[in-house]
Nucleic acid binder design. Structure first.
Lengths: 138, 138
DNA sequence: CAGTATCCAGTTTGATACTG
DNA sequence: CAGTATCAAACTGGATACTG
């Protein structure tokens, strides 16, 4: 296998760029009404993808190594975490930084600037999540 | 088949309540560090679930009927939309209102109060989504 | 440590057709 | 209109074992 970012063939892996998502057909709505914004659509499904929200939330606290991340994300497996990190890297939200080339290597995952700007978004989700929880289980 | 909310057996359909989600094991993190908040985890994956984000966004503009919703949510199918609406109803975000009992019946889906409070959250996601799109495709 | 490869069961989706 | 039934195909996630 050649490239990183290969196996994670997912809904959006079929799009190479966000701009493609932006061109997301959306056809079949002949005239008028607004319909959903493709950017929103892509964004919400990316961060809501299983594990991604939690991974991102943890990285918001600072760069983490693979194992650190794994122990902070409850039931995730190596394979899942690895795949999700590749997807997030491809989406330009996360950067993979090799700290040491001497073996064993040290790798850190850190948010990119745009990834970092997710902070208020995830905070808003977390805040709502608590209200929701309080609502549903009084 | 008896109950509404039956077929959509999904990750979180295995939890009956949000409070159960809150008790989500999270075990295996013996001591210390914060780890992810289960409320956040559940919330982000619920709204990020395929179609849910867009459905919710559309309902934020006001109550909609089944077909209105379907035409506003790009590629969704009847079956998917129906299933998602049942899940959102079970999650207490959406309320199903039967407007007319005379045939053909008229049904409207509207957000509950807690569902309505998602507005700022989804706005934040949308705003970020646009920044992200601009970033990735300049 | 930081992953990858493989296998595979279980879910999720999508098409299509049909009902009250 | 507002869905449900059914079936096949696609994708996902998890376990296990292995590498540099």
């Amino acid at each position: 296998m050649k490239s990183r970012v290969a196996r994670g063939k997912t809904w959006w892996a079929t799009l190479t760029t966000v701009s493609e998502a932006a061109r997301e057909p959306d056809e079949d709505r002949p005239s008028g009404h607004p319909g959903a914004c493709p950017n929103f659509h892509a964004a919400v499904e990316l961060i809501g993808r299983k594990w991604n929200g939690v991974i991102l939330q943890q990285l918001l606290t600072g760069p983490l190594r693979f194992l650190e991340l794994r122990e902070r994300v409850p039931r995730v497996t190596d394979a899942m975490l690895s795949q999700r990190l590749k997807e997030l890297e491809a989406a330009a939200l996360v950067e993979r930084v090799v700290t040491t080339t001497s073996r064993p290597v040290e790798v850190r995952y850190k948010l990119t600037p745009i990834g970092d700007r997710l902070a208020p978004v995830l905070d808003a989700v977390a805040a709502w999540g608590n209200e929701w929880a309080a609502e549903v289980s009084p």
